[in-house]
Every structure is written in C-alpha cells, then in structure tokens.
C-alpha cells in the first residue's frame, strides 16, 4: 500500500513559516502513521480501499493538521518567529563576512592569482623594454 505524498500539507507548512526540518519530519511520520493504520485495518480483514479510507479519516484532513502545526510557535523557523532579529543578524553577518571575501578568494585561487601576477609583470617588463628601445632609437 502506498502512503499519500501530502504535497499540499508540505506546501502549506513551508508557506506558513514552519522550519523545513520539522516539515519533513511531520510528513515522514504522517506517512508512516498512515501505513500503520492501513496495515492494522488490512489485518482486521478490511479491503485495501477501506483500509486507505480509514487511515485517511483517522489522520484527519491536511488542513486540520496544518492548522495544528502552525499553532505550535516553537516549530516556526527563526525568520518567522523573530523577523526583526533575523534581519539584523543577516545584515551584521553580511558586514562581518564582506572584508573576509577577498582573503578567502585569494587563498582558494592562489595559483590563478600568482599566474595572473606573473603574466602581468612579464607583460609590463616587455612593454617597458620596447618603450626603452624606441626611446633610445629616437634619441
């Protein structure tokens, strides 16, 4: 027997600001719960269709489950619970990380920067030598 995907519930929870890890856990547990109820119904002699209907009815509608999850403030994501703090933290993190970006870039692309520096230096030396020669000829 296949458990329902509960995509509408997943979407409603994510849109409602529930932390993604709790969304996935809720979906996983509800699907397993559905299979448990259906298995018990099949064992008691019900047909697969009846077992599925019974499981769906026992779990309740996706809307009522979504309402129960959204009523639990501890399950909301940090952004949703503390929007102002989240904005400030993001801005602070941005300004802290910004000066480190060139350093990180240089350490990660050291070889490229050395090659670029060497080729630019070589080019400058060749250009200087040519200009010097031209100046000598003109003089």
């Amino acid at each position: 027997m296949q458990a329902p995907e509960l995509d509408r519930l997943r979407l409603a929870l994510l849109e409602g600001g529930v932390a993604p890890r709790f969304v996935e856990r809720t979906i996983l547990e509800l699907r397993e719960h559905y299979l448990d109820i259906a298995a018990a119904a099949l064992d008691s002699g019900r047909s697969p269709d009846e077992a599925g209907e019974l499981a769906r009815a026992a779990l309740g509608s996706e809307r009522s489950i979504a309402a129960a999850v959204l009523a639990e403030p501890a399950l909301l994501s940090f952004d949703r619970r503390w929007p102002r703090s989240a904005r400030w933290l993001r801005a602070a993190a941005f300004y802290l990380v910004l000066p480190a970006v060139p350093v990180v870039y240089c350490t990660q692309h050291g070889g490229t920067i050395v090659r670029w520096g060497a080729s630019v230096s070589l080019g400058m030396m060749i250009t200087s030598a040519l200009l010097f020669l031209l100046q000598s000829f003109i003089a």
Binding site: R25, T26, L59, L75
Partner: peptide, 10 residues
C-alpha cells in the same frame, strides 16, 4: 487526533 499528535511531540 492521530495527525495532530506530531506537532505536540515536535
């Protein structure tokens, strides 16, 4: 309510 036990647990 079987479906609404999970928010309580979480």
């Amino acid at each position: 309510g079987e479906g609404v036990i999970y928010p309580v647990l979480h």
